[in-house]
Write a protein that binds this DNA or RNA. Structure first.
Lengths: 229, 229
DNA sequence: TGGCAGCTGTCAGAATCTGACAGCAGAGAA
DNA sequence: TTCTCTGCTGTCAGATTCTGACAGCTGCCA
């Protein structure tokens, strides 16, 4: 196996473990000596992988992906840039920054002329109507979805009626002017959606909800669109 | 210099030449023997680079970028996926396909669990209002922009008045419901924008326009927004 | 204090990469 | 046709890099 392949493997092994893994374990998993493993970790770090090592504990990979060398066509790059620009312009602050980072990271590894081509791709996202609220909540909601945590909501529906819910969020829908959290509602015992601009308060709990979000997403997709709140 | 670095260099050298380059030239540019160059080309091809070689002619790299190994955080991946989905849903067919390809390419190099994570990222683009026409024209327009070619338009403005123009297109603006070509209009001797749904006929000429599109974009940005047609 | 685990230096042997040389194949020019 | 250019492949010895073994350091925690 080539060294490059082994390094990629190492990333995957690290990814499978949420808890710290000792170098010895990793060395065995990738079939090399401990000394070589340390060298591999060093190489990955120098390539930008965020691996934390602590004496007496082990290694942890900060969540994320490592992509091997990849070739994109001109059109694919245009799609990538246009998409990132849309996110940059039409999403909440944290995601917008992430989108900018993606372009910056890609730009950083390209020679100057290609970096310019990224900036100058003639596809522009026009400023749209402002998006109704939710900028502060969205990162929290995304985090809750990623970690499958229950969410406490106090909500005001379209008629102004207030209610308190505990919901299991598994998706966010981006509409032109509003964003909608799709979740299982414990109160209604059914799927419901919640416009972020009608959320009055929101708390991410540390209680995990009992289903896989992928499964809920799948089930939800197979049904008719749920009603609001 | 490491081999990986040299391979990346080779891509850049190839990129700088629009016309075929002989292996001997490339070998000299990267500082290796011809035999090693052939090996390098082989490696790049096996990594997915689209390099065409023809006996008696030389090598050409099909337009596109090669990205070295790159690490993205969880949030950056979410931004990437969301952006690609937006393009997939709200752009013309060709770009939509390119966006799908981007996700497929990234997915292809990831282990299955990560591929699922791509599909299941809980961020969804809601279907919006249909976009006014222009699906057939957009790929042609983008091509004209990339190659800096003059465009022949027959256009009907908002009052229904028809006209024929020759324009120098350098950008496309994506609004919620319409798309707008931004160009220098030979008739008006000024910047003008044209809604794609009001374009009656369109021809991409093979005549190159005399300015750099980056420069025009820059100049246009520094001005007030131009009027329609 | 001892044990664990990350981390570094060194060196010889294993594995890989490289250049030189030889030769074939296809395309276009003379 | 024949010649030339250039892509492409095989082989092999020498250069380069990678690897494992060993020794030893540091910081943390029981």
């Amino acid at each position: 196996m080539s060294r490059a392949q082994r390094l990629l493997d190492l990333i995957q092994v690290l990814r499978r473990h949420r808890h710290p893994v000792s170098g010895a374990t990793l060395a065995e998993a990738t079939g090399v000596s401990l000394r070589t493993l340390y060298r591999d970790i060093e190489t990955l770090k120098s390539e930008g992988a965020s691996i934390d090592g602590e004496a007496g504990v082990g290694y942890v990979l900060r969540p994320g992906f490592m992509l091997p060398p990849l070739m994109f066509s001109e059109e694919e790059i245009e799609a990538l840039v246009l998409g990132s620009r849309w996110v940059h312009q039409r999403s909440d602050r944290a995601l917008a920054d992430a989108a900018a980072n993606v372009l910056a990271k890609i730009g950083a590894v390209l020679p100057k002329d290609l970096r310019d081509a990224l900036d100058d791709s003639g596809l522009l996202i026009a400023p749209g109507e402002p998006i109704a609220a939710g900028d502060a909540e969205l990162p929290k909601i995304r985090q809750a979805i990623r970690n499958e945590r229950k969410l406490g909501l106090s909500y005001r529906d379209k008629d102004g009626v207030a209610s308190k819910r505990t919901v299991w969020p598994f998706a966010v829908g981006f509409f032109e002017k509003v964003r909608v959290v799709v979740a299982w509602c414990e109160l209604r015992q059914d799927f419901r959606h919640f416009r972020t601009d009608r959320i009055v308060t929101l708390t991410v709990t540390d209680r995990r909800y009992p289903r896989r979000r992928q499964a809920m997403l799948k089930e939800w997709r197979e049904r008719e669109s749920p009603r609001e709140a």
